[in-house]
Lab assay of single mutants.
Amino acid sequence: MSIQHFRVALIPFFAAFCLPVFAHPETLVKVKDAEDQLGARVGYIELDLNSGKILESFRPEERFPMMSTFKVLLCGAVLSRVDAGQEQLGRRIHYSQNDLVEYSPVTEKHLTDGMTVRELCSAAITMSDNTAANLLLTTIGGPKELTAFLHNMGDHVTRLDRWEPELNEAIPNDERDTTMPAAMATTLRKLLTGELLTLASRQQLIDWMEADKVAGPLLRSALPAGWFIADKSGAGERGSRGIIAALGPDGKPSRIVVIYTTGSQATMDERNRQIAEIGASLIKHW
């Protein structure tokens, strides 16, 4: 067993022997301040990774656009098919120029040779490549099948209805392509620590998230040296922004954090800054 596999296998073990965790309302004060600064709703939840206990939450059962955070769930569904012998990570998928959609920095470079399922998941999570996500959605049967996968996990809230990039439209009061912070946090925890996926697939999923290259201005910008984070960000229309993450000190994750916002007129930089400040408060009061 590799060191990384050992780390993920012992996530519940280490967490069980940690000192009790206590909620700190100071972080919620910052979440509410972010709402004021952005002029928009902000949803927040913080779960203990081992027990699933909610440590703090704000608007945990209000719907927010998922945006690209759905790509972690998508690759979880792909990995479940791999575990069941219905898919192979090494299978190569070929596609054409007509398949390319807006923001496809990886797939646009491989029109000639195609990409493997493993490479597509890596591109979808680490670079948020939209064509990679659409190609992977095709392998599982489309958005409705991802929703069905989530329902089978016990998540009857999260739903995907459309493809990239239309799913980022974020129309107010439109339930399409949305989740709730509580539902997303619980589902992410199941994917990373539950028995739904094999140990190898859980490790692969967290490795992809740990290698995320496009979430630097968010929670990662607030992390002290030595902290662990595996995350996936999302951005959408109407001032929408979000991030889902597993993080913790001492090089291992111990909490799940989900943050979503929508309806702001603020710039992307300002949305990023507010999420980073929430992260800084979380870490300060850990």
Rank of each mutant, 00 (worst) to 15 (best):
P165V: 13
F228H: 12
Q265L: 13
C75A: 12
P60D: 04
A222E: 15
T107Q: 02
D155K: 15
A266D: 15
K144S: 07
T27K: 06
E26F: 06
R41Q: 15
K30D: 10
P65L: 11
S254L: 01
E56V: 04
D113V: 02
I171H: 03
N98M: 01
E61T: 10
E87P: 12
L196G: 12
F228S: 12
L191H: 03
T178S: 07
H151Y: 05
L196E: 05
T187F: 04
R220N: 15
A40W: 02
A185V: 01
A123Q: 00
E61F: 14
G279E: 10
D161F: 03
A276P: 05
R92K: 14
L28V: 05
T138D: 12
E175Q: 02
H285K: 05
R41S: 09
Q37A: 08
W208F: 12
S80P: 07
T27L: 08
R63S: 02
M127G: 11
A215P: 10
K213L: 10
E119M: 11
E26P: 06
D174W: 04
A225N: 07
T262Q: 13
I244W: 11
A230E: 07
M184I: 01
V214E: 00
E270F: 11
S96I: 03
P60V: 05
S281G: 08
S57A: 10
R273F: 14
A77V: 05
A276L: 04
D48Q: 00
T126D: 12
A246G: 07
L49D: 15
G194R: 06
A246F: 10
L120W: 03
I93T: 15
W208G: 05
D212V: 08
A246M: 13
Q204E: 10
V42E: 00
Q88E: 13
R159C: 05
L191N: 05
P25R: 09
G154F: 00
R162E: 09
P165Y: 01
S233H: 13
G263W: 08
M127Y: 01
V101S: 06
R63K: 03
H94P: 12
L219R: 12
R92G: 08
T69G: 03
T158W: 09
G279A: 12
V106K: 00
L282H: 03
C121A: 02
Y44C: 14
L167Y: 02
W227C: 04
L167T: 12
L199S: 04
T131Y: 15
R255M: 06
H110S: 15
V82L: 06
M115L: 00
A148Y: 03
R59S: 09
G242V: 04
G216Q: 13
S104A: 12
I171G: 06
P181N: 08
K213R: 05
A185F: 06
I45K: 03
V214G: 06
V78K: 13
D99V: 03
H156W: 01
M209R: 04
Q86F: 15
Q203L: 15
G142Y: 11
K109R: 14
Y44Q: 13
F64R: 11
P181F: 11
P224Q: 00
S57Y: 07
N130F: 03
R162A: 11
N50E: 04
L192Y: 05
Y95C: 03
V78Y: 12
S104F: 00
N173E: 08
N272P: 11
V157F: 06
S233K: 01
E237Y: 12
L89V: 03
G251H: 01
S233F: 00
V31F: 04
D212P: 13
T193Y: 10
S281I: 13
E166T: 09
P172N: 08
W286H: 00
T131R: 14
A276H: 14
T267Q: 12
T198I: 01
E62A: 14
D250A: 05
L219T: 12
I54K: 07
Q204N: 14
I275V: 13
Q37C: 11
Y44G: 12
G154R: 09
H94E: 12
T267G: 09
D177L: 09
L196I: 10
V31P: 06
F228T: 11
T112Q: 06
A215Q: 14
P181R: 10
L247P: 02
I244L: 13
D231Q: 08
V258I: 12
R255N: 06
N98T: 02
E145K: 01
P60W: 04
G216L: 06
H156M: 07
T107S: 02
E270N: 07
K30V: 15
P25Y: 00
G43S: 06
A170V: 02
T126H: 02
L219W: 11
R41H: 12
L196V: 09
E164C: 14
H151F: 09
T138K: 15
L192D: 01
E270K: 06
E277Y: 15
N272G: 03
A124G: 09
M180K: 00
M180P: 01
E175I: 05
T267M: 02
W227A: 01
V258G: 14
E102G: 12
V214W: 00
D207Y: 03
E210H: 12
T27V: 07
C75K: 11
F149A: 12
D36W: 13
P165C: 07
K71F: 02
K190Q: 02
Y44S: 08
I140G: 14
D129G: 08
A148H: 12
I256F: 13
W286L: 06
L146Y: 00
Y44P: 13
N168S: 06
G263E: 04
D83P: 03
A132D: 15
C75E: 06
W208P: 04
E277W: 11
L199I: 07
A124S: 08
I171R: 02
W286V: 12
M209L: 14
G142P: 06
T267D: 14
H285D: 03
E164L: 14
M66F: 06
T69K: 02
Q274N: 08
T261P: 05
W227M: 02
L100S: 09
L192F: 04
I283L: 14
G248N: 01
P65A: 10
E169M: 08
L137T: 06
L111P: 03
H94V: 09
V214Y: 05
T198Y: 06
S240H: 05
I229C: 09
A245I: 11
L199G: 03
D161I: 06
D33H: 05
H285R: 04
R63T: 11
K213F: 02
S201N: 09
E35I: 02
E210N: 15
M127T: 03
A183Y: 11
M66Q: 08
I244P: 10
P143S: 04
G43C: 02
K252P: 00
A200V: 07
I243Y: 11
L197S: 07
M180T: 00
V31N: 00
P172L: 07
N130S: 07
T178H: 13
T262M: 09
D33I: 06
L247E: 02
V72M: 12
R159M: 11
M180V: 00
E164K: 15
I244V: 14
I140N: 14
Q204S: 09
D155M: 14
G251Q: 06
R255D: 06
F228P: 08
L89Y: 02
A124E: 05
G242H: 04
W163K: 10
K232G: 15
W163C: 07
G43Y: 12
A148K: 09
V72A: 05
Q86C: 13
T178E: 07
G234N: 09
R92C: 08
R273H: 13
E237N: 15
R59E: 03
R202K: 06
K53R: 02
P172W: 09
T116H: 13
L137W: 02
L47D: 02
R271A: 09
I275E: 12
T158N: 14
I54C: 05
L219Y: 09
